[in-house]
Every structure is written in structure tokens, then in C-alpha cells.
Nucleic acid binder design. Sequence first.
DNA 1: GCCGTTTTCGGCCCGACTGTTTTCAGTCG
Length: 572
Amino acid sequence: MVTNSEIAAMLYEFAELTDLEGDVFKRNAYRRAAQSIEELDGDVAEYDREGRLESIPGVGKAIAQKIAEMVETGRSAKLEELRSKFPPGIVELMKVPEIGPRSLVRLHQELGIKDLEDLRQAALQHRIRSLKGFGERSEENILKGIAVVQGQGGRMLLGDALPIAEAIAAHLRAGGCEEVSVAGSLRRRKETIGDIDLLAGSDEPLRAMDRFVSYPRVASVVSRGPTRSTVRLADGTQVDLRVVPRDSYGAALQYFTGSKEHNVVMRRIAIQKGFRLNEYGLHRRDSGEMVAGAQEAEIYRTLGLDPIPPELREGRGEIEAAGEHRLPSLLRLEDIRGDMHVHTVMSDGRATMREIAEAAFRRGYEYIGVTDHSRSLHIAHGLTVDDLLASVEEARQLTDELGFPVLRGAEVDILEDGSLDYPDEALAQLDYVIGSVHSRFKMDRRTMTERVMTALSNRELNILGHPTGRLIGRREGYDIDIEQVMDEAARRGVALEVNGFPDRMDLSDLNCRKAIERGVTLVLDTDAHGVEQLDNMRFAVGTARRGWAERKDVLNALPLDQLRRFFRVAGA
DNA sequence: GCCGTTTTCGGCCCGACTGTTTTCAGTCG
């Protein structure tokens, strides 16, 4: 069967190929349709069967026909025809920075370049400078671009990028910039980041730029102007700084936070209402008078919208919701009362139960849950039943001694047949149970779904840990019907985890939203293996916010007595 | 290719920076 993401991938390919053909509007249309399919609740095949394809935003007659063909045959004749116009290596060439569709087509047509190696040779042999509009610098930049693609290529994890961004922001503040903010996809808390965007409001832009390029880890300056500069750090990370006058700071923050899709809609609305929106402010179209600019929220309010939190700005219906005053009241980090998934030295963690409890107390949590691995996970020193039961007593004593509730749970392996890795009698001694899949990832979709559904039917199970098993950039999630799992979890009172470990982020933002719509309770965890990793809770919160989560959707935003009641009801 | 509180046809966001140009195209975000 063709999945939604496979269809979306084909539509994205349509977009890239039509871009090469020279039609940016068609490209945008394909991209928009692809994005809609990615975010769709339910199978595209279902929409096709029911003749509802054209009800999907961005899908009209032509794309609906192509989708129908993809659903039925798994392919698209038109796509294959487009592909045949370009060499297969064109895909990797499109990833080279500095080379866009126009240049690429010319390099292909005029120099016969068909892959990365051809391009490198052409640059080294100085054949590119013979083309009109290209020169010596173009060849240098192309060689640099090739190095970037081959060097790291991939995107950074939010968890790696945010600390770097915050360090540079601190460097700017220390140099006299008063207003500095992280912007771009980092501010939206996207799980992976292409580059780091920073914004400064300053009436001395040149001084801010000097300070920026003097940051010790800057390896090279890619471009530099009075309002925008780009640098590359020693590890290859690209960082952009935009500097605007302070009375434009809010408009610039709005603009520079994105997403591109969100901004396109914002500007369209501005036009409809007789304004022009750019990074310097919101202006009346007729008189040019600036009506908003210093504060980000003003921009939204002046356009008749409630201010939209950065995490929602993905062009996923947030602007319509803001116009109708039905934006969610998003969960905040302060709403989280405890972390439910933390490992101790008993399995593969680095901190003792006491150290974790004390750290949790210092953070202002009202309780903490410690969860070590179960006996089958030898590689992580899973606990025997005896060790587990002994630690239940340790948690009790610690609770009494500290006057701070330490809950004893476990992260129990969901075995191949869907059973849990401890007998029910042992599980019943715990405060709660997380079930996770840690083995046999390559099962087919039906078997894997059955396996997890069986685990959900165990009355001792309270939380499904990292429900899709993906590791960002390293491993796809296992093949599972996650929507069926969500429905069953909602029905059985099992919470689904939003694991904030930077390479997991599992559930993802889109899955959070789907889960909430299906009535699932989320639980936000760090999966910390050391006390410093308790800080990862902000990533789980960011992901849940991107999934439109409110406090009421989240288990560990509840006070302890209600949390315990959730566990009792689920097990009843 | 999509879409409609201006529109079923004619739009589709907007500005900074670079390189190769004597006025702008291409790329990026």
C-alpha cells in the first residue's frame, strides 16, 4: 500500500522538477499539496476511495488525478516523464548551496553537468567561468558548496543547535546589543535545524556585526552587510544574524521566525487588508504610514489576529484559528510538574535515585518518576525482578526522607509477542509502568501493530514509551499503524509519551496533534540518563506545543493525586 | 497548479546580498 509520506515525497519531487522547468508557481502548488498530505489525518487512499481528494487544501483537479494514480499503481506516469528530462544526479546537485534551479539548468544544458563529480571537475578546470553571468568567484563558491553538501549535509538536532544559538546571543548581549533573540526554526522549536538564525535590534548595526563575526568559533564569514551577515562555525554550522532598528524589532522577529509558509499567508492577509508587511513593519499601502513594528504581537493584532506562538507558525491552520479566536492555550514548561521517564545507575543512567530526586526538587517539580530498563535489555543492564522490587523500597524511603514524592516505575520492554518483560505481580508493585519497544524493529506493519496493541491491553501498562521508535537522522521508526495505536491508547487510558531526548522527539509534533485530536493523554518526558538531561524537558514541551497541546492534554501537568488516579483508573 | 470578503482569470510575499554586471539575475530565507 502507498503511504501518505510516500505520496508526499512524490509530490515534493514534482515540485523540484517543475522548479527546474522554470515554473515557480507550479512548484509552490506541488509543495503546498505535499505538505497537506504529510499533515493529513487518515490515509490518502481513503480520501481517494471516498472521492474527497479535492477537499484537501492545495489539491485541485490535476493533483487529485495524480494522487489517485499513485494510490492505485504506486507511481505516476507524469512524474516519470519529468524525471526522464533530467539526469538522476540532478537531485544531489539541487542540494548544493549557491546553485539554484536557473543556474543548474544552464550548467546542465551548456556544460553537460549531470552530477556532483561533473560539477567539481568543471569548477576545478575553470570551465564554469566561461558561462555568461558566472565568474571566478562563482567557481570558488560552487566548490565550497560541494564541500558543504558532502561534509555534513544533514540537519542539526534542536538539542545541539539551541545551546550554540544561546551562546552566540549571549556573546552579542555582552557586546552591547540589548535586544537579541533566537529566530527561525529554532524559535519554532523544530526538531531539526538547517541553520541558526539570530535577530538583534540595535541602532548601531555595524557594531553588532563586528561583534558577531568576532565570535571565537566563527571559521569563515560567508557574507556581510549592514543588516545581514552569515558566518560558518568551525563545525560547519551556518549562522545568520539580522540587525534592524529597534522600532522594527517586532516586525523583524515576526518575519525572521517564519515559517516561510506562515509568512506568505501573513503577507497575503496584509495585502487584503490594505497593508504591506515586511521586516521593518506593517505599513498602510496608500500612505505608507507605519502602523506596527516594535512589538511582534502588534503585527498580529493589527491584522485582526490573536498573537500566534512561534511553535504554531507552520501554515497548518494557525492563522485561521487566530482570526477566529480559537488558538489553543498552549502548554508551558512551567505547567510540567514532574518527569516520568528517568534512568538511574541501576540500569544505564549516570545518577543515583537520590541525585535525581534532589535535582527534580531543585527544578521545582512536585514529583519525579524513576524508570530503569527491564531484565531483557541486557545491553542497558536491565534490572532483575529482585532488584526492581528492592528499588521500590528505596523509592519509598527516599520519599519519606526528602519529603518529595519519588515514584518507582519501570521502562519495561515490550517483547516480541507483545507481552511485558516482568510478570504482572511484579509490575503491580510499581507506581506505574512504561512499555517500550527496544528489539526486533523490522517486523512488518501488521505484526508490529499487533505487538503494541497486545501490550496496550495489559492492565499494568500506563504509558507507551517513544511510540514510533525513530532516531532522527539514524533510524526510521518501526512500521506501525500509529493511528490505530492512538485510538486504542485513548480507549484504554494509556498515555503516549512525548520523549524529549533530542534524537528521539517521539511522538513527533504532527503525531502529538493527531493524538490529541483522538483524545489521547500525552506524557512529556526526558528519558534522562543523567541529571543534566532533565533540561531536555523544554524540547518535549516545544514538540508538544508544535502539536497544539494544552495543559489539559498532558498527564504530568496534573498534581500528584490526579496523576495517581489516572494510573489507578487505567489499571482498573 | 490552485484559488476566490477585490477575482472563475490573473494573480501567486518581499527584501538583502553576491557576483558579474554598468542595471540586474539568481539565490536565500
